[in-house]
Amino acid sequence: MSTSYTEQVEHLMAQYREQYEALQRTQRRLREISCTVTAPRQTVSVTAGHGGVITDVKFPTGAYKRMAPAELAAAVLSTITEAQDKAAAEAAEAVAPSLPPGVDARKLFTGDVDLQSLLSPEPQLNDAVRDVMNIRD
């Protein structure tokens, strides 16, 4: 015996609410990303947030004063890159559960994923939707 139209719609609405709440949790987690990396000899400390945005740069010791400008610049740049990579990895981890199976979240963040691969040529419909639309395989 099939379920009534009302029950099917209620079921779809419940699924939608679950997905919406999961999306809100993911967004919250992304906003909370904060990754701090400290260079060797504690010359510089860099904090990156979601999207690789640098939110803080500190020089925790006076070690930077004894460095040549090119050496300090290299330390700052490599620490920034490492903090951004760490933040991207956390973001990928947060988003991964909501991606289709087989999609590498890390590659998605670096732009190495074919975006068309995220959608199938035909939409995936659950049984309730198929019943409402009278679609049969």
Rank of each mutant, 00 (worst) to 15 (best):
Q24V: 10
Q24I: 06
Q24N: 11
R25L: 05
T26Y: 08
T26M: 14
T26P: 01
R28S: 11
R28Y: 11
L30D: 09
L30A: 07
R31I: 03
R31N: 06
E32P: 01
E32T: 04
I33T: 00
S34T: 07
V37D: 09
V37W: 14
V37Y: 13
T38L: 08
T38A: 10
R41D: 14
Q42Y: 06
T43W: 12
T43L: 09
T43V: 12
V44P: 00
V44M: 00
S45Q: 15
V46H: 02
V46M: 05
V46F: 04
T47L: 07
T47A: 05
A48F: 01
A48C: 02
A48I: 01
G49L: 02
H50P: 09
H50R: 13
G52T: 03
G52F: 13
V53D: 07
I54W: 08
T55R: 11
D56H: 12
V57C: 04
K58M: 10
F59E: 00
F59G: 00
P60M: 13
P60V: 06
T61Y: 12
T61D: 15
G62K: 10
A63E: 11
A63S: 11
Y64H: 05
K65C: 14
K65N: 08
K65Y: 12
R66H: 07
R66I: 03
M67E: 11
M67F: 11
A68K: 15
A68H: 11
A68P: 01
P69Y: 00
P69A: 05
A70Q: 13
A70H: 07
E71L: 03
L72W: 03
L72H: 01
L72F: 06
A75C: 10
A75Y: 09
A75S: 15
A75D: 14
A75K: 09
L77N: 13
L77C: 02
S78M: 14
S78Q: 15
T79M: 07
T79Q: 09
T79C: 00
I80W: 08
T81W: 10
E82C: 04
E82Q: 08
A83I: 03
Q84L: 01
D85Y: 04
K86H: 09
K86N: 15
K86V: 04
A87T: 00
A89M: 08
E90T: 04
E90K: 10
A91N: 03
